[in-house]
Each structure stands twice: as C-alpha cells, then as structure tokens.
Amino acid sequence: MSSSHSYPHEPTGVETRKLGMWVFLSTEILFFGTLITTFMIFKGSDFPGMKLTDVYDIPFTSISSFILLMSSLTMVLAHNALEANDQEKTRVWLLATAMLGAVFLAGQIYEFTEFYHKGFELTTNIFSSSFYVLTGFHGLHVFIGVVLLLALWGIGQRQKGLTLEGGMNLEFVALYWHFVDIVWIVLFTVVYLI
C-alpha cells in the first residue's frame, strides 16, 4: 500500500455536487412515479361522481404548460450566457425563468380556484383528491424551483457575480428546473390528455 496523493479524488470525473443532484432526481422519479401510478389506478376506478373531465379547460392548461416549457428554454439561455461569462444576460434570463415559473404557478392557482368553484374540491371524491395532491405536489416543486432561481438571481447581484462552481450554482438549479419541466410534460399528458 502506498500513498501520497492529494484530495479530493473524483474517480468518475463528474463533479460531486452534480452527481448528488442526479441521485436526488432519480429518487424524485420514484416520488412522482408513485403519485402518478396511484392517480392512474384511481382514474380507472368506477366510483360515481364528479371527474376531472367535467371541469377541466384544456386550452388554458395547454398555454400554461407551454409557458413552463419556455422557461426551460430561458434556463438554457441563462446557462449559455454564464458560460460566455455574460453576467448581465445571465441575470436577465434567470429572472425570466423565475417569472415564467411564477406565471405557471399563478395559472395553477387560478385553475384550482376555478375547479373549486365548480364543486371539484379536495375532498369531493377520490378523483379530485388524487388530482390535487398530484398536481399540487408538482406545484410545490415549481415553487421551490422559483425560490432557488430568485436566490440565484440575488447571489448574482453581488459583486463576484455567478460562477459555474461552488455550492448553489446555476448548473445545479438548472438540472432541477429541467427535471420539474419534464415531469410536467408527463403529468399534463397523463392527467389531462389521456
């Protein structure tokens, strides 16, 4: 056994924090997988009563889905800007991403209130309960994402600006944000379209 080699040693060549994020996201798949599976089970059950199809507004949700998708694009633009070390543009695109996320959230809140007024409440029946818990859980993720983006934007205001290294970096948040977007594409298909 010989020694003398300096720390840290990353045998995979992947940055450790990024690797940690990937591991985290892989368990997130299980979170959403469980939620979606139970939603599908209940969706297929023949319990009488109000269903999502009685209240939903596909065009509206399509637009808000499109907005969330666009936020992934702005996220990529922010990342590109940072790679080019353009702090100004990075901040703009970051803020744009956060705003698009916020618009999506506002849309979801509006949608929930609309459904609520139509009598499709959390405790109406199994269909409504599983709908709200599933989409609400995703909404919570978007909310956390927006907070992270704003925090990043705030850090970018400081003198040093943003970098692609360090604890809370842009790449880290971008991974999370893209994941949340992709999940929504699945949810939108499963919940509204099928």
Binding site: I41, F42, L122, T123, N125, I126, F127, S129, S130
Partner: peptide
C-alpha cells in the same frame, strides 16, 4: 387531517 379518502372505501379509495 384533510378529509380525503385515498384509503377509505366510502370515498372511492382502496
């Protein structure tokens, strides 16, 4: 806590 019925037969749960 919030009156849903995911595991309760009477609300369609299982």
């Amino acid at each position: 806590k919030f009156g849903t019925t995911f595991f309760l037969t009477e609300g369609g749960g299982d």
